[in-house]
Structure formats: structure tokens, C-alpha cells
Amino acid sequence: MYKTVDVSRIQISQLMLPSHSNFSGKIHGGFILNLMDQIAFACASKHSGSYCVTASVDTVDFINPIEVGELVTMKASVNYVGKTSMVIGIRVESENIQSGIIKHCNSSYFTMVAKAEEGKAKTVPGLILNDKTEVKRFLKALKRMETKKHRQEEFDHSNFSLENYLDKLKGYRVKINLPDN
């Protein structure tokens, strides 16, 4: 079975209250991450038709702060599907209700895994890509996974040698003080 991206696309909006703010008066990043996890769950569950869990979160860059009183809108869509996992792309925007100014606050990618009732991973429907943006998002998800796999192989390989990398650290604010073994 295959489903289109549009079938599971979700958008939520919420007014930011003083109780959501941190000590500097901006909306707490942890609160935004919680909302992002909720919308990722809803989007993945809608696509898979089952309960889903968060497997990983890739790159959450807080670009612009969110102010108390702004309306935050989150948009989520399935960007990639594997056998049992889905990558959910999330875009977060805030709107100053008085001025109408909208700003992009962050984007992120949540990998969600569908679960069957007994807790085992469950196969998810395939994805029908209907436009160039959806194809590009799928390809970008593949590239992120490829890059992550390459990085893990490079640094976790049994032949990894720290000495091959020490020159790369020159120019950074780091002192290396390794014991002589």
C-alpha cells in the first residue's frame, strides 16, 4: 500500500503564553521541542495507521526566538519512508498577531518508527511523491542518512587512528593533553 504525502500532512497552531517562557522571556526551546515531537507523532501515526515512537531527531537549529503572545504554527509532512521508519519534516513559524509578521523559527527532521500492538516494529505504507519538492525532500533524507552512516563508519571503524585527525584540530580553541601510553 502507498499513501501520498498530503494524506498525512498536519498543521497545528498554538498561542504562546507566559507559562511557556524561559528566564529571558522568550519561549522555552524545550517547550517547542515537545510540540514538535507531538506533531511528528501525529503525522507518522496518521501515515502508518499505528502507534509510533521517536527514534531520533536530526538537527534542530533555533533560528529566531519566539515571543510570548505570538502564534506558533508547525507544519509536518512525511519526507521519507523506510520499511518501518518514517522521516517527518517539521517547519516552525511564529506570527506576531498584531503586525502580521511571520518568521521562520526552526526546521527539523524526526525519525519515527511504527509499532504493532505487541511492540514490534511494523511495516509502514510506501510514499507517493507528487511534486518536485516532495522528491527533493525524499532525496535530502537519503543524503542525511548516507552522511550519518559514513560518519559512524569513519569514526567507529576498528582502524580509526586519532593521529590522522590531530592536524584538523589546529586553529580551534582546544588543547590536547593526552597521556603518554
Rank of each mutant, 00 (worst) to 15 (best):
V72K: 00
L35D: 01
K143G: 03
A141E: 04
E95C: 06
K3Q: 06
T54K: 13
Q152L: 14
K132V: 14
S56I: 01
G126W: 13
G126Y: 08
E117I: 13
I27Q: 05
F110N: 02
V81E: 00
S21Q: 08
L15H: 05
C52T: 03
K122M: 12
Y109D: 01
G119W: 03
S85V: 10
F155H: 11
S107Y: 01
Y109F: 09
R173Y: 13
A55Y: 01
F62D: 03
V78H: 01
S21C: 12
K3Y: 02
S99G: 03
I27R: 02
F31V: 14
R91V: 00
T84G: 06
S99D: 03
K170L: 15
V68M: 05
S77K: 08
N34F: 08
I12E: 06
S99F: 02
L15P: 03
G49Q: 08
K136C: 08
T147E: 13
L162T: 04
V78G: 02
Q38G: 06
G89H: 05
K26A: 11
R151Y: 12
M16C: 03
S21K: 06
E93N: 11
M1I: 15
I128Q: 10
I10Y: 04
V81Y: 01
I97L: 12
L71M: 09
Y2L: 14
L166F: 05
E67T: 07
I63M: 00
N159T: 14
A141S: 15
F62R: 00
L166D: 08
G25M: 04
V87Y: 02
T59K: 08
Y172E: 14
S108I: 05
S107T: 10
L169F: 15
